[in-house]
Design a protein around this nucleic acid. Structure first.
Length: 330
DNA sequence: AACGACTTCAACCGCGCACGT
DNA sequence: TACGTGCGCGGTTGAAGTCGT
């Protein structure tokens, strides 16, 4: 934690000097009282009117991450953890969007939890099952990307879990495509029927094939990160938002081939792509616009989703089917 | 008890986007 | 169009807490 600047020490003697660091209970009280009586407005006004020598940004952060009355404090439940992992496999590091699906949790909280706990756990599970000492060696990444060396599932996971590697999605896709020919389908993976609920609309936006920076090996969910892709055993990679082409929603086999050189229509591991593509193209027959596919004006918890930041809410429309969820997706 | 290594998490930073002028 | 401002997001930092020796 950062040391709080004690009120009245030095900053208080300097008018207009904005405080930094930990919030004191007095500051918290001021902000809470102001927010409860006035509601959220312009954050710089909040800071000023509440009598806080903080920048609006700091006030916003404090309120959102700590003071908001609807926050659920305490440890993450196993159900929440599972949901976070699943959502991360879909959304990548879009913590705010993940948090939007976990009532009472903040993006910062989830981000910290992921970085400190889940990431480490997945990393350990991958390394413990991989006797090869090479799987954490960045030099191997280059070999893999060069397509010269087979990449094990654990290698891929370890690489994907390594946030420091700003891997090229397309190159990784190539590596994965090679791997798809050697890896058997995961025994305990989600099959398409199981994931159909989550992906019932994702196929409509299937424009890129690749692998992102997230991986959920234990449950056979791969993906997230920078590209959409298709995983072993028919799992579907769901793209992050920026990779979804708004103008080119119609997908052809050649598009897939461009992204995954070794892809063939008959490939066992890609057998589900064709149905996805068909669904995609049929659904978008009258329009290539994403907004027509998912519908502009989708709402999530009352917030209008603007184009360009639609957040798979539709794609995961029945995420509430998770039996352990204590909230309903609207 | 003391110390160092490791973990956790609140808060900051910088960037990009939206919007108004 | 260019610029300024505010907001939100994701990445990073660093102090406090915890653990191991």
């Amino acid at each position: 934690m950062r040391k709080p600047d004690p009120l009245g020490k030095k900053n208080n003697n300097i008018p207009n000097k904005l405080r930094k660091g930990l919030w004191s209970p007095e500051e918290d009280d001021k902000l809470i009282n102001y927010m409860l009586s006035n509601g959220q407005g312009c954050w710089s006004d909040v800071a000023r009117n509440a009598g806080l020598q903080r920048c609006g940004k700091s006030c916003r952060l404090r309120w959102i991450n700590y003071l908001r009355p609807d926050l659920k404090r305490g440890a993450f439940s196993p159900q929440e953890e599972e949901l976070i992992i699943h959502l991360h496999s879909l959304l990548g590091n879009r913590w705010s969007q993940i948090a939007a699906r976990l009532p009472g949790r903040t993006d910062n909280e989830i981000k910290n939890f992921w970085n400190s706990t889940i990431k480490k756990r997945l990393k350990n599970s991958s390394s413990s099952s991989t006797p090869s000492p090479n799987n954490s060696d960045s030099s191997e990444h280059r070999d893999v990307m060069g397509g010269l060396m087979p990449m094990s599932e654990q290698d891929i996971m370890a690489w994907c879990m390594d946030s420091s590697s700003s891997s090229s999605p397309s190159m990784l896709a190539m590596a994965m495509s090679n791997q798809f020919q050697t890896l058997p389908p995961l025994d305990n993976s989600y099959d398409m029927s199981a994931t159909a609920g989550y992906f019932n609309n994702a196929s409509q936006c299937f424009t890129q094939v690749g692998v992102g920076d997230s991986f959920y090996g234990d449950h056979g969910i791969f993906g997230g990160g920078d590209d959409m892709g298709v995983g072993v055993g028919g799992e579907l990679f769901v793209p992050p938002l920026e990779s979804i082409g708004l103008e080119n929603s119609t997908v052809t086999d050649s598009d897939i081939h461009k992204k995954i050189p070794n892809y063939t229509n008959n490939d066992h591991y890609f057998s589900n792509i064709d149905s996805i593509i068909n669904h995609c193209n049929n659904s978008s027959s009258s329009s290539n616009k994403i907004e027509d596919l998912i519908g502009v004006g989708s709402y999530w918890e009352g917030q209008n989703l603007r184009m360009g930041e639609w957040d798979l809410g539709d794609l995961m429309g029945d995420v509430s089917s998770y039996p352990f969820l204590d909230f309903q997706v609207e």
